[in-house]
């Protein structure tokens, strides 16, 4: 699949932003952070989530109708995501006002915002996980890794002591996801024979594509560069998203948020590689109509 930078940035930034919101609500509920911190991180989380959402509109070819995407929440995960993200941001805003005016006695709104932000990341992941046409995404591992990445990334900033364990789990899940992807690709139920309706597997070769040049289908769904550099990018991804952050955490004491912020940025860079691969390596069923083998 085409790894559009706007989509990758959207999933990473909004994921991280909603992860921060989730942690703030949780820590606030158990009185583990000050009001000032609640305000500062709510603004940061909300800001990143909004940047991510704005970035996601860059790939829309007809932006004027974007407002209509709130309407189909009964069937569409993309619509549910739009609704859930607005609800989360509204809750964060209300919580912010309450905390600002010093009425932090019942931090219920914060914890509800926290739950809703996890729901939002879940809806984002389901946009991809629901697609039967892309078998390597069509797994529960997809929502799992999206939610985990959001929570772990934000934990680096807010609770580095938890983040260390989180990163270890993320490493395992990341490798499981790649293993799943490779296995699905190897044992795909779809092949050129089923794509053409033959019941038994036959030796079929495409000798002429349906068009003489690139087209939308090829640009969008038959992306091949991802597979070429797959190994190297996987190593780079875990190096930046997991090993460098863990090394810094073990070597440096996190007494200010500055260190956390720097490590978060390094982690997000690694996540960019991971998310790039998530798209670029995913094989869409339509690619079989273009196979020459």
């Amino acid at each position: 699949m085409h790894p559009a930078p706007s989509i990758i940035l959207f999933t990473i930034l909004s994921g991280f932003g909603f992860g921060v919101i989730a942690w703030v609500g949780f820590l606030q509920y158990f009185s583990l952070i000050s009001s000032l911190e609640v305000i500062a991180f709510s603004i940061l989380g909300g800001f990143l989530a909004v940047i991510g959402l704005i970035s996601s509109t860059f790939h829309l070819a007809n932006k004027i109708n974007a407002i209509k995407s709130f309407s189909q929440w009964r069937s569409s995960w993309l619509s549910r995501e739009a609704v859930a993200s607005i609800v989360s941001l509204l809750l964060v805003f209300i919580n912010l006002i309450i905390v600002y005016f010093g009425k932090n006695t019942v931090p219920l709104i914060g914890i509800i915002a926290s739950l809703f932000s996890i729901v939002t990341v879940f809806t984002t992941s389901m946009i991809y996980a629901q697609l039967r046409s892309v078998p390597s995404w069509n797994t529960l591992l997809t929502p799992f890794i999206f939610i985990l990445a959001a929570l772990v990334g934000a934990a680096i900033l807010l609770r580095p002591d938890y983040a260390l364990y989180g990163l270890a789990v993320l490493l395992v899940i990341q490798f499981l996801f790649w293993l799943y992807r490779d296995q699905t690709e190897k044992n795909m139920k779809t092949n050129i024979s089923t794509a053409l309706g033959f019941t038994e597997e036959s030796s079929i070769r495409s000798f002429d594509k349906a068009h003489t040049n690139q087209n939308y289908l090829l640009n969008e769904m038959v992306y091949k560069i991802g597979r070429k550099h797959s190994r190297r990018l996987r190593y780079l991804s875990v190096l930046f998203s997991i090993f460098i952050p863990v090394s810094i955490m073990l070597l440096v004491r996190f007494d200010t948020y500055v260190v956390g912020a720097i490590v978060s940025v390094i982690h997000l860079l690694g996540m960019y590689f991971s998310r790039w691969l998530f798209f670029a390596e995913a094989r869409h069923a339509v690619s079989f109509y273009y196979d020459r083998s």
Binding site: N62, K63, I64, N65, T190, Y216, V286
Partner: peptide, 20 residues
């Protein structure tokens, strides 16, 4: 009149029947 051109339907179709 309602389409915003997000392309998700083209991704969802396994046959490549939709084009933006």
């Amino acid at each position: 009149e309602d389409c915003m051109g997000c392309g998700l339907c083209a991704w969802a179709c396994p046959y490549g029947a939709r084009e933006l």
